[in-house]
């Protein structure tokens, strides 16, 4: 790899964990379910970028693309299921607070 490519690769390696950490920070510092899911989405964005950069610098972006497409499908399914869960939680507790769903009953 050329010097410019190595620099760019390091840049991506540094930036993507930062995105992941922003997502973790969002999950840790909020009690709103929707904000928690936004945090999860940001974490997946970091992973997507890391996969794409690894594929690009590896010389095989086709492989990375297939993984990213699979990940996007999983992301959408997660969001759809969590949307259904949010509706039910709001119907039951009339609030989006995550502390309401801490206790398992049954």
């Amino acid at each position: 790899m050329s010097v410019e490519n190595i620099l760019l690769f390091k840049l991506y390696i540094i930036a993507t964990p930062v995105l992941f950490l922003v997502g973790i920070y969002a999950i840790m510092t909020t009690r709103n379910i929707i904000a928690t899911i936004i945090g999860i989405e940001i974490m997946t964005k970091g992973v997507t970028l890391l996969l794409a950069s690894c594929g690009y610098f590896n010389g095989r972006p086709e492989m990375a693309q297939s993984f990213i497409i699979i990940m996007i499908v999983v992301e959408v399914v997660i969001l759809t299921i969590s949307a259904g869960l949010i509706f039910n939680i709001v119907k039951k507790h009339d609030s989006l607070d995550t502390r309401n769903i801490r206790n398992l009953k049954g």
């Binding site: 794409a52 972006p61 996007i72 959408v76 969001l79 989006l96």
Partner: peptide
Amino acid sequence: LSCPLAGIFELSVCSGLITVIFISVISLT
């Protein structure tokens, strides 16, 4: 990063569909 197919997926699904789902969830709660 020469991943055009993944880019199109990201643009249409994550930027379009997921935002719409988020906004509809927020508006319904």
